[in-house]
């Protein structure tokens, strides 16, 4: 009855959100008095040993040349078989695009209740109740999982990594890999950018920036901070910025440590995608902009004057420290 954590990788490197999921799963295992194990599917370039320091005692490593592309149907079969073999009862994912395709399939396959978008450890004092984000971050729900097997998909940036000095045993696991019905005909990677969903800091711009030619204000600050960039919906709609940068109710929902909004009014649909950020900074020339109500820090001023000064101050800070 162990806890099993699915470790997601990008180009063979374990994602930060997987370490959060590992730490989270390890805490659940401690409360249940059992062990936390991990499953890694597909060839890795990373050192799996380091999962030990996040509380994992055993890593099941499935490397099979028949696993060619990422297909939820194939992964579900492989992981489902592994779960049966390992005897895991609680399965943890990080709630990203791959988990959103696998976890629901696995829920059906194992008849295991799924809570996606979890933001806190389960309460096991009376059943098994998991807190999740609902209404696009505007509220939380406590959801009870009624089945013996349970699946939780943890929102990125909502659980702090816990690092210790444990070690993990790595065991190769064989898999029966079904053939994929999906043929990948093209992959188009946006290189050199920090993926928005995983970023610690996000600098975002709205219509207040007047045009795409002024976006260096946003990108310079982002570069100085090592941040990802985002934008409001109209900015993506009028093609000042690419669609994948659109955050909000109908775009991506993010929860970075720091969100800096420049020239964005703070419409309710925009807030829905960013209100889980730990710290929010708003720069807007209109003191009445609704965004200030959701902000921790604010500057009422002209972005064209203020932002370059902030960028300079950040550079100065980084040089000293």
């Amino acid at each position: 009855m162990s806890v099993l954590i699915f470790i997601d990788q990008a180009e063979g490197i374990i994602k930060k959100s997987s370490f959060e999921a590992a730490s989270y799963g390890a805490q659940i295992a401690i409360s249940m008095g059992t062990s936390a194990e991990a499953i890694v599917v597909g060839k890795t370039q990373d050192d799996l040993n380091k999962l030990g320091s996040y509380g994992i005692t055993k890593v099941h490593y499935i490397e099979d040349t028949n696993i060619k592309n990422y297909d939820a149907q194939v992964y579900t079969k492989i992981i489902g078989d592994a779960i049966e073999a390992i005897g895991a009862t609680v399965i943890i994912f990080s709630n990203n695009t791959s988990a959103k395709a696998i976890a629901p399939r696995l829920s059906v396959r194992l008849k295991a209740g799924l809570v996606s978008g979890a933001i806190a450890l389960p309460d096991m004092s009376n059943g098994f109740v998991v807190k999740k984000s609902v209404f696009s971050g505007k509220a939380f729900a406590q959801v009870s999982i009624l089945t013996a097997k349970k699946i939780i998909s943890l929102n990125p940036n909502s659980f702090n990594i816990i690092k210790g000095d444990g070690t993990a045993e790595i065991v190769a696991m064989a898999a029966n890999v079904p053939s994929s019905k999906i043929e990948v005909t093209a992959i188009n990677k946006i290189t050199g950018e920090i993926p928005l969903g995983e970023a610690d800091i996000v600098v975002s711009g709205g219509r207040g920036l007047k045009g795409p030619e002024n976006w260096n204000l946003v990108t310079d600050l982002a570069t100085a901070l090592g941040a990802a960039t985002a934008c409001s919906r109209p900015v993506a709609d009028i093609h000042w910025r690419p669609h994948h940068e659109h955050v909000g109710q109908t775009g991506l929902a993010i929860a970075p440590n720091l969100y800096i909004a420049i020239g964005i009014s703070g419409a309710i649909q925009h807030l829905a995608g960013v209100n889980r950020s730990k710290t929010i900074v708003v720069i807007n020339k209109d003191p009445e902009a609704p965004f200030f109500k959701a902000a921790d820090y604010g500057i009422v001023g002209d972005a064209f004057e203020v932002v370059p000064k902030i960028t300079a101050a950040v550079k100065k800070l980084k040089d000293i420290s």
């Binding site: 008849k111 971050g137 959801v143």
Partner: peptide
């Protein structure tokens, strides 16, 4: 497989 027990709102800023 699941049921919602209750809801709550985040603390105000």
């Amino acid at each position: 497989l699941t049921s919602i027990v209750s809801f709550d709102l985040p603390p105000a800023k």
